[in-house]
Design a protein around this nucleic acid. Structure first.
Lengths: 121, 121
DNA sequence: CTGCGATGTATCCGAATGAATATATCGACA
DNA sequence: TGTCGATATATTCATTCGGATACATCGCAG
């Protein structure tokens, strides 16, 4: 029952390289990590398993020139994770692209929506 | 071995409704059906199983106000499929959106690409 | 009326995906 | 030093997805 989960409108997935792509999920995850300061909290917040969240972080960190997320083990709070400058930059850049896409594509999307079943305009 | 399959750059997936979305695959399929005049040929051409192609057509047909693809059974050639006006319209509209997205997002994509590992610009 | 080539549809199976689980580890602090 | 909460990592298991396959149907042509 994960219907209604996906935001309506254009979903942008930027394929940077055969193995790396930034999509809505990655962007959300980055932001959630920035907010919560933890991979596990971010995962729980967006209803994603820790494993999945962690794997995504690994992949992103591996393919960029520097990590997007820095992690710490142990410590008073048990550890944590935080966005690096680069991480913030990438997340922000994605959101900007998303916003632009929504802007620019709005008319065509409206047009397509009008052609859906039950939308006799 | 499906690496290198996906085109680099922005991949646009337009979510029109909780159950319907038009992505690159759907657009390619529509166009291939238009070219070949057959679901099965289109599937073979784009290396997609007939089952998958047929299911996609079903879903798209079901959710728009009118079919995007009309099919015919039997006949001299055994049958076939063709794009309806609406189908052509949807395919064209998607391509246009795609083109616009590429245009508009190019600078940010370049920027992100520059941040990839091995791309010390 | 039989064969052909396509659509239409059900069923089965293997691969990929991801969730769940189980540890191990780390480091500050009481 | 022992606890705590988080990261880090392997393993196992269920589910999902899609491919392969098989078969029925259709309608014209010969």
């Amino acid at each position: 029952m994960k219907a209604g989960n996906k935001t309506l409108g254009p979903r942008l997935r930027v394929v940077l390289d055969e193995n790396v792509a930034i999509g809505p999920g990655q962007a959300d995850l980055l932001e959630a990590i920035g907010e919560t300061g933890s991979i596990s909290k971010a995962g729980r917040q967006m209803n994603m398993s820790y494993r999945r969240a962690w794997l995504l972080v690994q992949k992103m960190n591996a393919h960029f020139s520097a990590p997007l997320v820095e992690t710490a083990k142990g410590g008073s709070s048990g550890g944590g994770a935080r966005l690096t400058k680069l991480g913030q930059e990438v997340a922000a850049c994605y959101r900007q692209m998303e916003a632009r896409a929504v802007e620019v594509l709005a008319p065509e999307i409206e047009r397509l929506r009008g052609l859906l079943a039950g939308n006799r305009d």
